[in-house]
Design a protein around this nucleic acid. Structure first.
Lengths: 233, 233
DNA sequence: GCAATAGTGGAACGTCGTTCCAATCATGTT
DNA sequence: AACATGATTGGAACGACGTTCCACTATTGC
């Protein structure tokens, strides 16, 4: 009783790569990385594991495809300012927000460095770095530094979210546990960590992240000698 | 026939936490993250899994303990220059070299943000940032930025090593595969990645890393000279 | 000497990613 | 209308993993 166009099955009940990836994103958002399981996936799709493997090679590819949907969506909007420094900032902000909304993305990007989603980010950032006047060796190094920073923040974000989920509490409460551990350390052996433990729970991730981006942009200006970071206002 | 001091069993055949951790490091160095298995571990220690669990709570704790040995060793030497900027550089270099020699450390640090090894790094870097004249909010933000960058580089290093191991070839050859993929991308859609594909295989990780560190240090100098933290819009 | 406790070895459990295969469905040919 | 073919499906089965459990041995305090 089901109508079907020859090639493009518009049938909603039919299995397809995009439907699998969309469901995978649902599971990841609900239960984090451990929430994505081929059993949970086949259960929600009301099919078997073999059917899924017909459309997708393995879990790694599934994770990359899921990340790519999020990353492509984050890079699609905004970041088209005329000023490269501002565009860089907006770009980084978009990626950060996407990683905050979907913490598993940060860890997925880490485990597949050369894959499409990370390449997307790398390319878009590289374009802006180039527009800032970097050339030759510089543009590579600077872009790589930006990406590494972005990736580091993203994976720490993912780890924080995982810890919060594991303890069954919200992020602030989970960080509070770490803060207590730090505060209880020997002040002689860890002078900075003990004094910084208060800020660990009070700080704003997003603001800190953006300050780091500004730091890198300012550093680029200082090292090339030409530009001043005055533009980031 | 075995002599034994009451508490401190110097017996080489006896199981102990430190012997377990040392063997775990061996396995990690030989086979990467997937090389560390409770079965492989109990096999090499000529014992059962239950005996190991008497000394160590779970795999997470084992990975943290293994990382701590490497990190503590890396932070123990050097980095005692009088110039904070130079000390910061030397510190970062030590951690980078340790992560290069033991690629699994980068990924382990990512998955346990508040644990002792990462705290060690955070504290040592924070001390130098503080010595550079940062105070209040700044010293936290700057230290966090350094750590994030360090972590990002470390986990990408780990991912590269994992990819190289998986393909059974050396790192350069594995990166070459990624470079070919990038070169084959649409030049209109990925103008930067396509043009940068040559550098991907030619570059020197360590040099790039240090340039990034210098970038951050230079940024700190530039930002403290002029601005106040009201830039966050 | 003897109970108590620290420590050991390995079988067993449940879950995971992945593979395999018989059954089903849609389609082109006769 | 009947069949052959290849794409697609559902679920059983496999091997490996982290972890738990428990019977057992060795050491210690009394």
């Amino acid at each position: 009783m089901v109508k079907h166009t020859p090639k493009a099955q518009a049938d909603e009940t039919a299995l397809s790569r995009s439907r699998i990836v969309a469901t995978a994103i649902q599971l990841l958002d609900e239960g984090g990385e451990p929430g994505l399981t081929f059993r949970a996936l086949s259960g929600r799709l009301a099919t078997g594991a073999g059917a899924i493997y017909w459309h997708i090679a393995n879990k790694r590819e599934l994770l990359i495809a899921a990340s790519d949907v999020i990353v492509a969506g984050a890079l699609d909007i905004g970041a088209n300012r005329s000023d490269p420094a501002q565009a860089l900032r907006a770009l980084a902000m978009n990626v950060f927000d996407a990683m905050q909304a979907h913490p598993w993305v940060g860890s997925a990007l880490t485990h597949a460095p050369g894959a499409l989603p990370m390449t997307r980010i790398f390319d878009r950032i590289g374009q802006q770095v180039r527009a800032l006047g970097m050339a030759g060796e510089r543009e590579w190094t600077m872009t790589a530094a930006f990406c590494h920073y972005l990736l580091g923040v993203g994976s720490r974000n993912a780890a924080n979210a995982a810890m919060a989920r594991e303890c069954g509490v919200e992020r602030t409460r989970a960080l509070g546990t770490v803060a207590e551990t730090w505060a209880a350390l020997d002040e002689k052996a860890f002078p900075f960590a003990t004094s910084a433990s208060r800020r660990l729970v009070a700080h704003d991730d997003r603001e800190d992240f953006l300050t780091g981006i500004d730091l890198l942009v300012a550093g680029m200006g200082a090292m090339t000698g030409t530009r001043t970071p005055e533009s980031a206002a």
